[in-house]
Design a protein around this nucleic acid. Structure first.
Lengths: 90, 90
DNA sequence: TCCATTGTTCTATAGTTTACGAACAATAGG
DNA sequence: CCTATTGTTCGTAAACTATAGAACAATGGA
């Protein structure tokens, strides 16, 4: 749902996650240096996941997180690009 | 702020307002047939206004509401268009 | 086997958001 | 002046969100 994606992207912590993923591709959750506790980070990853913005693949003890770019681009053409462009550099 | 705009657009009632404005241009608040009380509608108009998405010009006893398209397009190029396209027809 | 690492889940809490009705202010028309 | 219209503001209640700590599960290495 579009409103779900917009909502997921409307939080600074979650937008930061998405920006990092757009730059670096797949990463483990622990590599984002987020200013919140890990339980809070887990919550934000779930919001992004359930909105269809990211996907997480287990690998050993960690989860490799990546953007669902093609999926988003086909459902909401241009949306992610414009958000990333408007959000500026990391 | 980008997150403020995304948040403003992430509510179904507010997105509906924006879609109507994108189609019809300036309109009075009472012409939107929103599924909420007028005090609630007033709240949503304020959120959109404070995020910089719309502007409201008093005219008699009513407020003519319109999209701040150029402003949005210059601050966040392509964002509004992609949201409007993704949100489909009214 | 034992321990460290990684992230989830559970529980609680403080703050925010949405929602409504009632009262209010401003304007226009008779 | 009185009334109707339009929308805001206030007070309040319900629902939701972000946050954190503690406990837990799964994996991998020593």
């Amino acid at each position: 749902m579009l409103t779900g994606v917009l909502y997921a992207l409307s939080d600074p912590v979650r937008l930061s996650i998405v920006k990092h993923l757009a730059e670096d591709g797949g990463r483990a959750c622990g590599t984002f240096c987020l200013p919140v506790a890990k339980s809070t980070a887990s919550h934000h990853f779930r919001v992004l996941r359930e909105a269809g913005v990211i996907q997480m693949r287990p690998e050993g003890t960690q989860y490799i997180t990546s953007l669902r770019r093609e999926d988003l681009d086909s459902r909401f053409p241009g949306l992610l690009d414009s958000v990333l462009q408007a959000s500026g550099p990391i």
